[in-house]
Each structure stands twice: as C-alpha cells, then as structure tokens.
Amino acid sequence: MHPVESAAMNEKDLLLFKQLKAQLGVPLIPGLMVLDVRTTQFVRVELVLLKALMEEGQPGLFISVDRPHQYIVHLLTMHGIDCRNLTFVDAVARFSADSKPTSVKVGFFQGPRNIDTLPEALKNWSAADGRPSFDLGECGFAVIDNLSTLLNYNSQQVVRSFLTDFISALGGKVTVPLLVDRERNPNLFMMIKSLEGREIALVPENVPMPSDRARLKISNSNIKGGY
C-alpha cells in the first residue's frame, strides 16, 4: 500500500482527497492554484492536500509562516505520511518559544516580515550554510502555510511581489496550490487569480457539512464554493 494511503481518512476527507486529486492532475499540473477554504478548516484541508500532492512521490517544499514546522511534521507523522520528500522552510520558528524536536530537512528563514526576499534566498541555499541542500529544479510542488498570515506582516504589494518572484524562481514547472478564505481575504483571493492562479473548484453537492452548506448559500454559486 502506498504510504499516503495507509492513513485512514473519513468519508468526508476521502471525498475531498478525490476531488483534489482530480483538480491537481496526474502528473501534477504546474502553476499557481487557489482553493477557497474556511479558516477553521485550514489544517484539515492542508493535510488532505499534502496527501494528494505527495502521492505522486515528487519532492516538495513546505513554507511555514503560520506555525512552527514541527506541528505539520507531527500531523503528517500521525497520519502515516512520510516526510522524507518534503523540505521545510520555517519562517516563524524563531518567533516561537517552541522547541519540539524533529528530524526532517528544515531551513530557517529570518521571519515572515519581508517575505519578498525569500525567493532569492532559496536560490542561494546550500548545505554549507547549515541548511538542507534543495534543488528548486527538482521540486514538484510547493505549499505555503499560510499566505493570509503574511498579510499580518507585509503589505499586499510585498506579498504580490513575493508570489511573483517565488513562481519565477520555481521555473514555472511546480504546482503551487494556495488555501485562502475568500470571505475573509477577498483581495488576496483576487490577487492570486490576477496572477493567473487557477481556482480549484469543488463540487458543492459533495460538501455535506452544515456550515459549508450555509457558506455555499452565502457565496451564491452553484459551481464553486468554499470548503
């Protein structure tokens, strides 16, 4: 059994997994993507998204700006997902008093402020600096946890600049799905779409939770809706 499949998923998550797999493509379709996700569901959806991305076996990049990377490592480990193909860039751990140990490939960035300098820093990373060597050219996908948090530290202009440079640094061959709560961050959602970000559409009939039904009604859409 594939390591990703070994973790049991409930019916709702399995449905989400299948929908995401269909949208991400096999092999992964490169480019910027955006998925409307309610803030309270970020971690759950991110977990299912990572399962879907990692099933292809390609190396991936995980940029942590909302919580120290150890939490995602713990989450993935608990769900039986092997982290060996993931390289973590932790931009928030230095702000945290947390000292949970992990044994994954991780490089620490100075902080979420001035995130626009990260793409250039990534290009120059090397093992000599005590950071994990990481070949951007080999990268299959990149996940940012999460983009909305960057707006606490940076202007929209800086976040836009970061995204543009980040996609460029990845050479346009990498899948970059971003989770954004459209209701709370409509400007950010539209910004990603303006950067040719493809909206990942989920079928609303397959979203059974009462809160999501309410949400779909608010968004007044028959096709797309927040998860």
């Binding site: 803030t39 309270t40 909305s148 707006l151 606490n152 530290y153 940076n154 202007s155 929209q156 202009q157 836009r160 709560d181 709370r184 961050n185 400007n187 950010l188």
Partner: peptide
Amino acid sequence: MEDSKLERTDLMRIP
C-alpha cells in the same frame, strides 16, 4: 485601500 499598507483583517471568531 492603499496597496502598500497592511491589510488588517478582524480576528476569526467562532461562536
């Protein structure tokens, strides 16, 4: 909203 300013979003709340 000016693009160069921080976008302040209210805290997410749950009842």
